[in-house]
Computed example of a mutant assay.
Amino acid sequence: MYKKLTLLFGAFLLSVCVSAQLGIKAGVTLGGTYGSSEEFNGDKIESIDPAVGYQFGITAQVVDLPLFKLNAELLYENRRGQKHANFTIPASEQVSVNTDIRFRNSFEYLSLPLLATFGGDKFNIYVGPSFSYLLAASSDVTTRTTVSPAQAAGSGGLPSNATAETEIDFIEDYEDSYINRFNVAANVGVMFPILPRTSLDIRVYHTLTDITNDDEDRSIIDRAIGNPDPGLRDDNDSSVGVQANLVFHF
């Protein structure tokens, strides 16, 4: 499916860029995903941390007027983020089980931003939407289980004190993709020249659509304790980030 979209986006840019000013761009992103945090006994158990990703692609100036320009881009984006969950469940009056889970997420998108640009040769401000299709989504997960008191670990069906490293494929490991395949975001940024034919592009984006698929969004606690019938979470997750790119104009 995504190969067809790649060809479609490529054909679109080719059709509008025959007489347009072209460029290539590449850079880094500092961003992550946030939403409704899980709670346990009234306390939030999740924290969200940013991570560094990257992007690269081509850009085309399809409308060029004295004070207004329209730019179209075709980008590969690797958006990353981190999530940390920590909770303790009493096993009895004397024994408790603490679970500490860290997720290092990587989401790969094919994106088509359409940007209305205002300004002159020295400085430009732009705003516009981007339309993205998810190519791949995965997470490296570290789970640490600690039983207190320690001598209770492994007895009576309690887990052992242990650390496990796993990898989740958010597409292949679920009946439906855990991350929604299509995504729309709002973008605002500035661009200014730093060298001949080279500009610095600084951008902020924020998604307008729900990142996660609620049909597959289940509680971290339920998953950690092996609940055979975990409940669904009805929440709205968003992705936000700051991008810095170098743009090379032909």
Rank of each mutant, 00 (worst) to 15 (best):
G128M: 07
L8S: 14
V95N: 13
G157S: 06
I171L: 11
A60C: 13
I101Y: 05
T59I: 10
Q151E: 14
I211R: 00
N245V: 04
F103Y: 15
S155F: 14
R80S: 12
Y178A: 14
Y34T: 13
T146W: 01
V247Q: 02
T145L: 09
I194D: 05
T59S: 12
V52M: 07
L115N: 04
I45S: 12
N180K: 12
Q151G: 14
V127M: 12
A116L: 10
P113L: 05
V52H: 04
L246N: 02
N78F: 01
I101V: 15
A185V: 05
S36D: 13
Q151N: 14
V147K: 05
G157M: 02
F68A: 14
Y2L: 08
V188N: 04
T142S: 12
A20F: 03
K3V: 15
V18S: 14
K3A: 15
V95T: 13
I89R: 05
F182N: 09
A72F: 13
I125Y: 05
T198V: 15
F56C: 08
D100W: 01
G231N: 10
D214P: 05
I221P: 11
R181D: 15
F68N: 10
I220L: 08
G156A: 08
L232Q: 09
I24S: 08
N124H: 10
I211Y: 02
V247F: 03
E172F: 06
Y54E: 09
A224D: 05
Q21W: 00
V242C: 08
